[in-house]
């Protein structure tokens, strides 16, 4: 779908992209990075709107430097910012945009009606956009990116400004763009929890450099762990500690879940046990029973991308001296809210 080869983009004072090489395959790909990591710059270059300082990139097999117009005919783009005039209806606006993509008038109207229905706009599409909610506006923005039936859409922060329900709707819609419509998606976000649920593949960039590119399952399923919470009893005033010790004695890798900030669990009362196989569950059950503790919860817990990202940025930040430092703190924080919601996915 997209082949990026040693791509650099330097502005007079900032290096937005630094020898970035990555291949993006069909499917839903998440492009993750903190603000200023180079995501929007990359999208501009991929649309053939901004020349790269050095390196090459091809979208759908077309060179971005020379065939920008042909690329833009087959690619849809949804900007991050608001871009809709309030005084026209969604239908008129999307029809116009369809024609700007080269669709003949009749086809433009048909495709507009279809696309607006697919993104979930019905009767309200005849009303002026000015009266729409943020969620509806985001749908119109998505519709104008899809109306010419592109082979690939670039979505820049599509969940910006949406409430949790609206965000879930939008993520579901993005997933359907690929599964039902057969259109590949490159979606940027700084919220990792979102991409985990939506994407097949995640590309992490920071400071214009590639940090990591791998499939979402690699990110989240390499190590499974088990969250265990127990009650305290008279014999064991600190049940968690006692269990931890007993499990460690039984040969399991145990660590307390330290970060109180990021979970719905009571701080210090949850143990994370690495799962080696089926027998781990039995060991945990038997140990808890042996100590006479009450088992509050025992649940499978996937690693979240955010943890890996946090580790990676830690490494990346120290590796790329200077400018990396300022950005590494950024991405970790917002997904703290995400995690609570993402936990029960396990």
């Amino acid at each position: 779908m997209i082949a990026i080869e040693s791509l650099s983009k330097r502005f007079p004072r900032v290096t937005a992209l630094d020898r970035l090489s990555v291949d993006i395959t069909p499917g839903v790909t998440g492009l993750v990075g903190a603000n200023g990591a180079g995501k929007s710059t990359l999208i501009k270059i991929l649309l053939g709107l901004s020349p790269a300082t050095e390196g090459r990139a091809a979208v759908l097999g077309l060179d971005v430097a020379t065939e920008g117009s042909a690329i833009r005919e087959r690619v849809g783009y949804m900007p991050e910012h608001d871009c809709l005039p309030p005084d026209v209806s969604a239908t008129e606006f999307v029809v116009h945009m369809a024609r700007m993509s080269g669709l003949p008038p009749t086809a433009a109207r048909e495709r507009t009606a279809d696309t607006l229905r697919h993104v979930g706009l019905y009767e309200e599409r005849y009303r002026p956009i000015g009266g729409y909610s943020t969620g509806m506006k985001q749908r119109v923005k998505l519709a104008q990116a899809l109306v010419h039936d592109p082979q690939l859409v670039l979505l820049d922060e599509p969940t910006n400004g949406l409430d949790p329900v609206g965000r879930d709707d939008m993520l579901g819609l993005i997933r359907r763009v690929h599964t039902d419509f057969g259109i590949s998606v490159l979606v940027t976000s700084h919220l990792l929890g979102e991409l985990e649920r939506t994407c097949d593949h995640v590309v992490v960039i920071d400071g214009g450099k590639l940090l990591r590119s791998s499939s979402t399952s690699d990110f989240t399923q390499t190590t499974a762990s088990l969250a265990v919470e127990v009650t305290d009893t008279d014999t064991h005033p600190d049940g968690t500690k006692a269990l931890g010790k007993a499990l460690a004695d039984a040969g399991l890798a145990v660590q307390p879940m330290g970060r109180s900030s990021d979970s719905a669990y009571a701080a210090g009362h949850v143990l994370l046990v690495d799962v080696d196989g089926e027998e781990t569950y039995d060991v945990v059950r038997d140990t808890v029973a042996g100590l006479g503790l009450g088992l509050v919860r025992m649940e499978q817990r996937r690693h979240h991308i955010s943890e890996i990202f946090r580790d990676d940025t830690g490494d990346g930040g120290s590796a790329s001296a200077g400018d990396g430092g300022a950005t590494t703190g950024g991405p970790a924080r917002p997904d703290a809210n995400e995690k609570g919601a993402a936990h029960h996915v396990a």
């Binding site: 649309l47 709107l49 117009s69 042909a70 833009r72 005919e73 690619v75 783009y77 900007p79 910012h81 608001d82 871009c83 809709l84 005039p85 309030p86 945009m97 700007m100 993509s101 080269g102 104008q144």
Partner: peptide, 16 residues
Amino acid sequence: RDLRYKSVPLYFSRPI
């Protein structure tokens, strides 16, 4: 109007 509502990028993300 195109400038104010930032629709210009939508035009330039198309073949023109």
